[in-house]
Design a protein around this nucleic acid. Structure first.
Lengths: 179, 179
DNA sequence: TCATGCATGTAAGAGGTTACATGATTCG
DNA sequence: CGAATCATGTAACCTCTTACATGCATGA
């Protein structure tokens, strides 16, 4: 009865390892590719969690491959730990949207400084949206995992909503300096 | 030339202090009320940042009021630090959406376990949406700050988008167990 | 052979969360 | 007087980021 309970970062790694052994490097790449925008993690974290989980017996390091690469394989205990974590349901989302902070403090920043930032954000959201759409079309063509597709659709829906919001902001927020 | 550069948490506090002196307790309440869903912070952080900023001369502690309450006032240096921070534009958003993590790992969680979680999320989003709408209507009637209103509109737009997304998920993700 | 990319990791510090500890004030 | 609420703060811990350090392999 290891009543520990793993954290979401560790759990995400265990999730990916269900598909077969991966090295730290590959895990970072996989995470970046599949959930990058919704779940950030760094190399440091990955290596730390991997050796920590190896100590707990949740993953087992495999033989060193080429270039010191060390694949980790999920163990039965690891699968159990993952299932326990999943049974708890998703935690509340942690959001820190600096853009919204800027908007709410807009009075003290000044509409003249805020407006170009909002314009820049709109540009970025449009890019992001295009990227999601490209990825979705590729994955659809390739007949991919519907779960993965669903995350792209989330990205698309939210990016569109954000753009709509930016476009609908009143002139008090978006007006360029009045000169 | 304090070339330090404050962090976003400290900056948000300085932002609120532009409207007049506030105690740590009041800052927590204000933050919760105005940007709670988009910018989380805890009491511990607030007290820590306040005493840290007092050390840097960005805020000045006022006289102790009732019940040990200690209001902090922003200083000129504080206003400058805030302006410098704002000039950098909003950082990239940090998002950790456990819900999306669950979805992308859906294959390993099982549609039968995922479906009720999605249903629960839908319920929560609907509640959130209703809360935003109520707040917006109140603020509109009160003729509030358009910046604050804009953040509520963001919440409304995104909550609606999320609900639409949840409702549009394919049967592979939302089907109850097939028995 | 030399630049680039693959691959691993450590160290230090910043940021964030949770639990603990304390006490004043107000209201019933 | 007792309960609820206001109010501050510390300590410990976990998590996350950034910078540093190392070296192999591939291909031009």
């Amino acid at each position: 009865m290891s009543e520990a309970g793993i954290n979401s970062t560790a759990a995400s790694l265990l999730g990916f390892l269900h598909d077969g052994p991966l090295t730290g490097w590959e895990l970072v790449a996989r995470a970046e590719r599949t959930i990058g925008p919704f779940w950030s993690l760094t190399r440091s974290q990955v290596y730390r969690e991997l050796s920590h989980m190896a100590g707990l017996g949740l993953v087992a390091p495999g033989p060193v491959g080429r270039r010191e690469s060390r694949p980790y394989e999920i163990t039965d205990a690891g699968r159990r730990a993952f299932a326990d974590w999943a049974a708890g349901g998703p935690d509340a989302a942690t959001m820190r949207l600096p853009l919204l902070l800027f908007v709410v403090l807009g009075r003290h920043i000044g509409a003249d400084r805020l407006a170009p930032m909002l314009a820049e954000q709109r540009r970025r959201q449009a890019e992001l949206l295009a990227g999601y759409q490209r990825a979705r079309n590729q994955l659809r063509a390739a007949g991919a995992d519907p779960f993965r597709l669903a995350t792209l659709e989330y990205g698309i829906t939210v990016a569109r909503a954000t753009i709509r919001w930016l476009d609908g902001l009143g002139p008090q927020l978006t007006a360029p300096p009045d000169n």
